[in-house]
Write a protein that binds this DNA or RNA. Structure first.
Length: 263
DNA sequence: ATGGTCGCACAGCGA
């Protein structure tokens, strides 16, 4: 059995103490971070090490992007992909002792305008998802988990107001379709929604709201997926809303799931 | 309809 968490930390160096607090309070076996905004050699690995998290598999760059998998069970580096050939640190994979592979993904946000003819970043987001789809189609994953900030809230109840969000990047039909194609190509099951099938579910609230909790204009951008062969072993999904209220928070909160598998 | 807040790194870009 192991507990897995994913969290867009928005600078792992600035928020190393928040990571420690989560590790101490919730003790996930594996924590996947996105937007570390740090070269790998500047990630404060020692402080995680001191809490028993002896393994880190990461990709990084200066200032932007960056993904890391922090683990207290042994993991080995299982490589990375440069979807859409952006040259960004947006994917890394790790293998658990039993052979389960964990993909940690940070999908491009996509800018403000949901039109690739006027907004290059939106096109890059769609291309990233198309490349992911093609990779999973060519090499269909088994006994795998995919987590991360996918920057898309696919369902009506994954946003505070579906109608109002239809032309807002992260909830446009085009993006939802691209994400669905990548999900279908890999045979991925949305573990969070398997466990919590109905009702509003958010993992992100903008920094720009006067009062994020009162307005509650959230979106579910952060996801845990598993291939069908192991999705039945998952349970106890949780989204830690309270973490948004911690001092100096990330705009995202951690998403958790447990897997009844030998790690 | 607009502007609102962060982080990086030191001006403005990305989110």
């Amino acid at each position: 059995m192991f507990t897995l968490a994913t969290w867009n930390i928005n600078s792992v160096r600035l928020r190393a103490q928040l990571v420690c607090r989560l590790l101490a309070d919730e003790a996930p076996d594996i924590l996947c971070l996105q937007e570390c905004k740090s070269p790998v050699d500047k990630i404060p690995a020692e402080v995680f090490h001191a809490l028993g998290y002896h393994w880190i598999v990461a990709r990084g760059q200066k200032g932007y992007n960056g993904v890391a998998i922090i683990s207290r069970i042994p993991i080995e580096d299982a490589g990375d992909r440069d979807y859409a050939r952006l040259g960004h640190a947006r994917h890394v994979a790790a293998r658990l002792p039993g052979g389960v592979v964990i993909h940690n993904v940070y999908v491009p946000a996509g800018g403000d305008e949901p039109d690739r003819t006027v907004n290059v970043k939106f096109g890059q987001k769609l291309d990233f998802l198309t490349d992911m789809r093609d990779a999973f189609h060519a090499d269909r994953p088994g006994r795998s988990i995919l987590v991360g900030d996918l920057n898309i809230a696919p369902r009506e109840d994954d946003v505070w107001n579906h109608r109002q969000m239809l032309k807002i990047v992260s909830h446009t039909p085009t993006e939802v379709e691209h994400l669905g194609a990548a999900q279908d190509a890999g045979g991925w099951v949305d573990v969070t929604r398997k466990d919590i099938p109905t009702g509003p579910l958010f993992s992100w609230w903008s920094y720009r709201a006067r009062d994020w909790a009162a307005a509650n204009r959230g979106r579910r951008l952060d996801h845990i997926w598993a291939t069908q062969d192991i999705s039945g072993a998952s349970h106890s999904s949780r989204i830690l809303r309270d973490v948004r209220g911690w001092e100096g928070p990330s705009d995202h909160v951690p998403v958790f799931a447990r897997f009844d598998l030998a790690p």
